[in-house]
Design a protein around this nucleic acid. Structure first.
Lengths: 297, 297
DNA sequence: CGCTATATTGCATAAAACGGAATGCTTATG
DNA sequence: CATAAGCATTCCGTTTTATGCAATATAGCG
């Protein structure tokens, strides 16, 4: 019985609502549904009484709840036992990442780290993701989350955490908003580049990808502003300032994603590979190694 | 943390020997090795100190051992709790299968059944696997393990437990044994069918497959004997009585497999699909349903 | 200095899990 | 009473993960 299944079970037992739980757990409803089916299968009993409208625990489900809680506690106790005794990793480690990454990528890392090394204090710095490798190389950060460039600087270790498409976005053309500008969004060839500015990142991988893309498609665009940080770019696009390319991950997490549309039928940009980075020669340091290992799995 | 991983861990902790444990667990050494790596990964600590010659528990491994034992106990207690309270399934169910199936396919089924329904008494009958569906239809057995025929009789439920190739076998041509008969085993076309008898099952799917195969390849073979039960056929082949086709599963489990060689380069026969069968209209009976569900997963 | 025993890795394949879209049931609403 | 909206589930194509076989590597033994 997988730990993640127990967590899912307990969450669902709390909410009694698949859609809500699946959101809290960052899973699709279908996945959660089948996770529960798998649990019931392995337990050999129906744990939730449910139809399409109501969800509740069965008698067997209550037994399972006790089991799940105690098993999860035992697991967490083990983590503490294994990781406080031997190494006693303590001190501070800094981690630099974008606001988005801090939401979507870090929760499992951080929770595992707190369990394994309660004495280790993680100093989280957020900012423009494009800066991250520079900050790492400059020694300003111990670890960073960055998009992997075509060729990684020598001496930098990279551990993949997530992939994300890089997508073009514009403001959603709502009834109210139509006045702003009318762009054919079917293809970049028909797009009115003269009238619609391109919002370009100040630096970083996204900037380079977009520039290469413009060259390849022989498009000359007005560059409206050079902004730092994908989150800020998303905000500007939402306000109707122009078109831009950002990682889908940032878009998904954005509070203004409803007023944005992504131009999926445009020719694709390369994917972003987002991961944890640190300097190779510091990977032996216990604190950094602890962060590194917590990120794996 | 998967139950099966805990079981593997505990077994290895007992033997301190990958090869031996992997055999006991019916796994390949490489699989076991990677299972342990996965456990260590998830635990975030090295649990076995090992080189290519010696295996021993680390300090962390001992902690994990305590955790594994208690977690496994909690799991089994849950099984008992879930399955004794509600249904109280008691009585006798008969299960007919071959000797081979009883070794290789039944252990997980039986152990789960004893855990879930200690009051249920399984009456195990072994015999020729080819008889099983007849016995089921005749009402002589409640459940059987059988190879799935091209078309399943109406009213019979089938649940796949394992796939197995159907392979031709002859006696291994050892130095001592060469005198017996010299057959080119490279291909059935060059095989000396006139001098080497074919041992054919008295009935059942294997018999039909082989007969079709002979027709297709236009081979007329002497039929030396018609034997019932694949295990008996294997014994006869091992004694040098001729050539035959049996499911690989039977071969693997045979005590005389060392004096047998399989003719893998011969044109293939259809695979065997081996599974649990019962009558559809009896699937609601609690005892039969219990067996059925215990077989799943 | 091979030789054997044995844990591990590379690689190809098989199985499982996942997300998005479609489905179907159930309650709310006009 | 008909229609809509909400929600768990299933279908399906894709990605990820696990597995076994064969090859590799290494330690101990004669």
């Amino acid at each position: 019985m997988e730990i993640s299944l127990l967590r899912a079970y307990l969450d669902l037992a709390g909410t009694c609502h698949f859609a809500r739980s699946s959101e809290r757990l960052h899973l699709s409803p279908s996945t959660l549904s089948r996770m529960i089916q798998r649990i019931e299968q392995q337990a050999g009993a129906r744990l939730f009484e449910r139809n399409n409208r109501q969800v509740s625990l069965t008698r067997a489900g209550e037994s399972f709840h006790r089991y799940a809680v105690s098993t999860l506690q035992a697991w967490e106790a083990l983590q503490v036992e294994l990781h406080t005794r031997g190494s006693r990793v303590q001190g501070e480690v800094s981690l630099y990442c974008s606001v988005t990454a801090s939401h979507r990528l870090l929760d499992s890392l951080v929770s595992r780290l707190r369990l394994r090394h309660p004495e280790l204090e993680l100093k989280l710095h957020t900012g423009d993701q494009a800066q991250s490798l520079q900050r790492l190389l400059a020694g300003e950060e111990d670890t960073v989350i960055a998009a992997r460039p075509q060729d990684l600087p020598a001496g930098v270790e990279f551990q993949l955490l997530a992939r994300s498409r890089l997508v073009f976005i514009t403001a959603r053309q709502s009834a109210q908003n139509t006045a702003g500008y009318h762009a054919s969004v079917a293809s970049p060839a028909y797009f009115d580049w003269a009238r619609t500015p391109l919002i370009l990142a100040e630096s970083g991988l996204a900037r380079r990808h977009v520039q290469a893309w413009l060259r390849q498609h022989k498009i000359r665009a007005d560059i409206y502003a050079q902004v730092s940080g994908h989150e800020a770019i998303v905000s500007m696009v939402a306000l109707g300032c122009g078109v831009a390319a950002v990682p889908e991950l940032v878009l998904d997490a954005s509070p203004v994603r409803d007023s944005i549309q992504s131009l999926d039928n445009w020719p694709a940009l390369p994917d972003f590979e987002i991961g944890l980075c640190t300097l190779s020669n510091r990977l032996r340091e216990p604190m950094i190694e602890a962060v590194w290992n917590a990120a794996r799995d």
